[in-house]
Each structure stands twice: as C-alpha cells, then as structure tokens.
Design a protein around this nucleic acid. Structure first.
Lengths: 329, 329
DNA sequence: CGAGCAGCGTGAAACGTTACATCTAAAACC
DNA sequence: GGTTTTAGATGTAACGTTTCACGCTGCTCG
C-alpha cells in the first residue's frame, strides 16, 4: 500500500521488500542481484509506485542526464530543425534537453550559459554569434556555426564547400553570369563562408559573379530594387541566382515570377539550408542541404564522449545538393 | 584561492568568509543578513567562484525550477512559436524548460510523461492528441489544444470563435459562396472546432459554404483537384476560401495564381494561425491569429500558481483577425 | 540598573541517493 | 570435516543544500 501523499523513497521500498537499502539501489540501477531479491524489490517498487529521485541521484554522482541547448530562437526553421534533431539524438542516448532561447541577446546568452553551469548540466550545446561570450571551461561545451577558438569544438556544415558546390551546379546548368543574394550579418560565424566558397567556385568555373549584400535588418525590398536595377527590356542581367538562405530563395522566386521571369528557363535559382517544409506546406527549391541530423549527432557525440583522444576544434560536415523540380534546369 | 578542480561548496564559502553555513545559505537566497556578513560572504563567493548546486537544492526543497514541455515537434511553425513563447515566459519566471519532442508517437509521449515525472519537474505542459495518454496526477499538468477531461486544464485558442470570425470577415467582404479547405485529423483536438465555428458562422450570415476535408496524410494535390473541379470557364465557383491553416493558405494562394485567379479580386482568402515568418521571409495573408503568447502565459500561470481556487477545465483565449494586404479586399 | 525581548548568526539534522567497506553464509578445496 | 575462498547482502558515510531550534548580543522598558 502506497504512503499518503509524499513520494516513497528507496528506504520505503527496502522496508516493504524486507531487504537492505543498497540492494534496492542495485536493482534500480540494473546491477546483478539474487533472483529472489530482485523479484521482491521489483514487486515492492510496483506496490509503492516508486520512482527514483533524479535530484538525489544527480547530487551523489555529480552527473545528471541533462544537456543544455542554447539557441537564438525556434522560429527560424534551421534552428528549429536543429533543436528537433538534437532532442531526438539526446533521447536516443537517454539524455534530455534543457532549452534556452536567447533572441540573439548577448546578455541572455551569457546568463543562460551561467545558468546552465549552475544547473549542473552534463554539457552545453550552444549556437551564438556573440563575439565576446564567455564560455564555460568546467563543463563540456560544443558550439554550432561559430568558432570560439581552439578550446571549444565547433560543429557546422561545410559552408565553404556548399558555396563552391552552388557555383558548380549553376555552371553545370549553363549559367554565364550569376549573382549572389546575401544577408550580411555583422557577427562572425561559419555560414559567412558560403560567400567565400561561392566566389571561389565562380572564379574556378570562370563564372562572372555579382554580389548583393543586404545588411542585416534591411528590408527585403532592397533585393527587389537590386533585381529591378539589373532588369532591362524584360531581361535580367543574370541567368543564375544564389541565395544564401532557402527562405530568401522562396521569396526571390515569388519576386521573379512577378517580374514575369520564368524559373528556371529564364533564371536559375539555388538556395541554401535544405528546408523542405513549412507546416503542412511542402516547399520545392534547388538547394544546398545542411546535414542537420549529422550536426546534431556530432554535437551529442562530442559532449557525451569521454574519449580523451584529440578533439578537433572545427568539424565541417559535408553538404549535398538537392534539385527541387522547378528552380534549376 | 579556489580549490583544485572540484567545485567549492557552501561549506568552503563559510570557512573562507569565517561565517556559519546557514549564513551563506541566507546570502545566496537573498534572505536579509547583517551588512558586514553579507559583504564577507559575497567576497568569498567571488573568490572561490562558488555556484550553488541546484541538485542539492532540488533535493532538499522537493522543488526544482524545471518545467517539462512535451510537443510533437518543432518543425510546425505553430508548435515552434509556442515553445518559443513558453521558453520566454518560463525564463521570466525564473524557471527553465525541459523539452521533449514526440513526433506524435503515442509510446514516446507516454514515455516522456513518465520521464518528466521521474525527473521531478515542477510541472508538465503537454500538447498531444493521443486519446489514451495516461497523464500524471502527482504533478501539475496543463494540456494545450486537447481536452483530457475535467481534471486536466486545457488551454487553447477560441477555435470555434475563430472559425466564426472567418465567416464574418468573408461576409463583410462581400462573399456569397465560400468553401472551407481543411486537413481532417483522425484524432480529437480543439482546433477541429474551427470547422464548427465556420459552419455556424456561414449559417448565421446566410453564406453558402462547401467543405473539402483532406484526410490527414493525403497529398496536397487533392486540394488542387478540388479547386479544378469547381473551376469552369476561367471562373471559380467560390468567391471566398477559408483555409484552416496558414501554411495551407499560402500554398493555395500559389495554386490560385497558377490558375490565373487574382487574390483578392477574384477569390478572397483567409487562413488560420497567424504565422508571419518563415526564416527571413515575411509572409502576408489575411488570417485568424492565435494568441500564442497568451497561451504560453496562461499555461505557465496555471502550472506555477499554487492558488487553490477553482481551476477552469477549459480556457479558450480570444483570437483576432489580421488583414494581410493582398488576400482579402 | 536589571529583567525581558527582539534580532540575528549558528550549526546540526535531514533530504534520497550511491559507493564502499563489512559481514554472512554457502561453496570449494584438500 | 575443517579451512579457505567468494559471492553477495548489508548498512553507513558521504553528496551540498535548506531549515530550524538554539543561544548570543544588545536594546528597551519599568
């Protein structure tokens, strides 16, 4: 019979089963114990509806199964799918996720890193572009998309390679003169390398390449203006466009249609990220796909692996090209 | 001077500061203490780089500041923005979020509810349509968008009212004959009431209303087929469409354009949810906006309030209409 | 001037677990 | 059969907090 309101403890179980406290602990933790004892304990656990108190566990062992995930928001589909994958990967490893959204606010980012340390999580997975974020040294920490120096491993897509690949694909599809549409963050981060890769790719392919760098926060209209400035007699100066983000690409596609341009017959279009869904809506666009699941898995491995081997300070995971029906020939 | 590797404890701080253990505890918890003592303790805390061990705290008090959030995924923008808001609201109340993604899998949902109980969270906020989910009784629990009976408070938008409002708005804009495009879930949930509200609204307004109920999982193409079946000589049978989801509405708008129909001149279009952003992309569509922030706040209040007053078993929060430029006249 | 009281710092006990050193009893060996 | 070995159950000592009864100091009031 279970006790009143307060939860039963291991001691209660031990008493109920007529065994010692330590024996219950062993059963709970799957440490081999005499058949007869195990059965008695298991029965008592069921009777009392006993559940271990993970805080007592955590206090003793110093280990909790919690991993903090610090991320600007969940509204950006890339972040959302990243967190989604992280959750699955952690669950598969019997860990769970404590989530913090920062809205890019440096103070909040800093506070959450501190808070995570205080909550005694087993590790931190952090995506922040904040250049002067002070990161923990006591707790395993992995950064995504932002290199914080050799001490903190950073995981990201191969953004440079992705940019290069985009250039290759445009060339393959017969483009001669292309433009890159980009939202330029003031903060340093790995995704910025998409530009370098694309420029290098264009150069290697002998592909003429213009750049339109929209300042972070500037209205989308500036992209429209840019396109119109390069639009004469119903013809665009470019036969290919590379958008550094899928969401920009989708928007640009709409704009191109409104300008009376056909995609991909008149202009070829390629995005970056591999975001395929928006709610119930399937999106189609040629894109460079970020390996979100692999990023998540790599982060979790780095955090949980106690393998003392040399840990790389930067891990770039290969991207892949995916053709989306109507955007590239 | 800080100790070697292991973290300093309150005892270390007490020794360093030359005060009693209890005094340190008071300082840490903001309980008034003699000025001189407080300063000594604070200095010692800084010296030793002391941080409280929240697991020891949790064990003593039985309270942790953790709230579990159980949700199908983060890929749906509605869920994502909900979780986003929940995170902010919880942070403002000095709590933090343990996130679990279930992918609608009943076994996972059940497992996570159990796990959350075990982790001794202070409360659970859960969004699941699973009809036979066994919910905790020991821990405060709030459900979103799904009524589980009088014992579990359920928070949702006023879906019925939203459907009704959509009908009103279409009528106001001069529609005569409208259709509702809907994805019909097999599982019971509050959002299903959008249909009832819309039907009731149309009836009250004297507005002819057809329904197209797409089975969950069926391809979008069926919506297209439906529209084409009601499309004769360049004219659609309907002068207004209500999509039960914004993401459907955006897709439908594309389809309408491809059919050569102008929105809103030829057909008026209204969605539901109030999803405004997709990455860097601003979306525009007339819609019934769900009060996501209010939902989050209400959930958190219900969980944290120890107010023994009568708790409603269903809380429907008012939605509002928002006109999105080019979709409704 | 002394008794009483308020304010406040003190330190021990307790929270529920794990780990380890002990101890018991049965098995193995000569 | 007696002794050694060993498997395995036992119970105690932490882990780092919070809480609370206690006792000290110094102030107030008669």
């Amino acid at each position: 019979m279970a006790k009143k309101g307060n939860n039963p403890t291991m001691n209660d179980v031990a008493r109920e089963a007529g065994v010692a406290l330590g024996t219950v602990s062993k059963v709970v933790n799957g440490i081999p114990v005499g058949e007869e004892y195990r059965i008695r304990v298991e029965k008592a656990i069921k009777n009392l509806n006993y559940r271990v108190n993970s805080y007592a566990q955590g206090m003793k062992s110093g280990k909790t199964r919690a991993i903090a995930v610090i991320m600007p928001n969940l509204v950006s589909p890339y972040f959302a799918s990243l967190v989604n994958s992280l959750g699955k990967t952690l669950a598969a490893r019997k860990h769970y996720m404590v989530f913090f959204g920062t809205d890019y606010d440096p103070d909040q980012e800093q506070e959450y890193v501190r808070l995570a340390e205080q909550q005694k999580v087993d590790g931190i997975i952090c995506l922040s572009y904040n250049p002067r974020l002070e990161l923990s040294e006591d707790i395993p920490l992995v950064s995504i998309d932002r290199y914080f120096g050799a001490k903190i491993p950073c995981v990201s897509s191969d953004n440079y390679g992705g940019g290069y690949l985009a250039a290759e694909k445009l060339k393959e599809n017969g483009c001669r003169h292309v433009a890159m549409l980009r939202i330029a963050s003031k903060l340093p981060h790995e995704p910025a390398k998409r530009r370098d890769g694309f420029v290098a790719g264009c150069e290697a392919m002998g592909l003429a390449c213009d750049q339109m760098n929209l300042e972070d926060g500037a209205p989308y209209q500036e992209f429209v203006d840019f396109l119109h400035a390069h639009f004469h007699n119903g013809k665009l100066d470019y036969d290919g466009l590379f958008c550094v983000t899928d969401s920009v690409a989708y928007q640009i596609r709409g704009t191109l249609k409104e300008m009376g341009l056909r995609v991909p017959e008149d202009v070829q279009l390629i995005g970056f990220d591999g975001i395929r869904k928006f709610g119930d809506m399937e999106l189609v666009c040629s894109t460079i796909v970020q390996p979100v699941d692999a990023i998540a898995e790599t982060c979790v491995n780095l955090i949980l692996n106690t393998d003392p081997g040399q840990i790389p300070s930067l891990l770039c995971l290969p991207v892949r090209y995916e053709c989306g029906g109507t955007t590239l020939k």
